[in-house]
Design a protein around this nucleic acid. Structure first.
Lengths: 103, 103
DNA sequence: TATGTTACTTACTTTATGTAACTAACTATA
DNA sequence: TATAGTTAGTTACATAAAGTAAGTAACATA
């Protein structure tokens, strides 16, 4: 393909529409969390979580902070750019509440 | 995993977060369109478009109408459930406009 | 008869994800 | 001192999903 609908929109989807990404951000909207907390809260595998967190850092949606304790504690936090995804995720939540039936 | 954030939200993401799905719905918000129009507008392959449209029909987000002309004309239309995704996609668009830079 | 049309499907390749074992760098316990 | 336990990953391998390109049905036109 060549003509694009809207490059920014497509870029946004190419980030957020990857499997697990929205759920990771949604989870971090609850507050900063460490690797294993996210992993067990949403059920993503460590392999993919690691990959996604790197992508999200690269996109400046998430920040990684290392606390040099024992064992090491690493905390992931949403940036302003990440926080500002809240209205979009809330809209999806609202749609789900109105239209989706749980399996 | 077992404990789930919100079953409806996760169900919504399992539909909308599949590759191409949001873009297909976004495209159909412009109005009813036929297979080849969607295909060339967003650049999805026929194989996957066919698969997604079946999923979207099954979820009652899209309706398939056959016009028995020559060659056959088949038109895909958003249902009310599909139309009601507009606010969510608009929020993503708004986020993209504010935060995303086109490549 | 050969070509063109749309809306797919099929076979095959490449990419993404899941699973489970492994590692680094330390501490606690026996 | 050896053994086991911690977190935050990584690695290797298997399976699932997506991309690519050719093929098909059902007709019409040249």
């Amino acid at each position: 393909m060549d003509q694009t609908i809207c490059p920014k929109f497509e870029k946004a989807l190419s980030i957020m529409n990857k499997r697990w990404t929205s759920l990771i951000v949604f989870q971090l909207l609850e507050g900063p969390q460490r690797f294993c907390e996210i992993e067990s809260a949403i059920g993503v595998s460590g392999r993919v979580l690691s990959e996604r967190l790197k992508d999200l850092e690269k996109e400046d949606i998430v920040t990684r902070t290392v606390y040099d304790e024992t064992p090491v504690r690493i905390v992931y936090t949403l940036t302003d750019k990440g926080q500002s995804l809240k209205p979009a995720l809330n809209q999806i939540q609202a749609w789900a509440d109105e239209w989706v039936e749980a399996d």
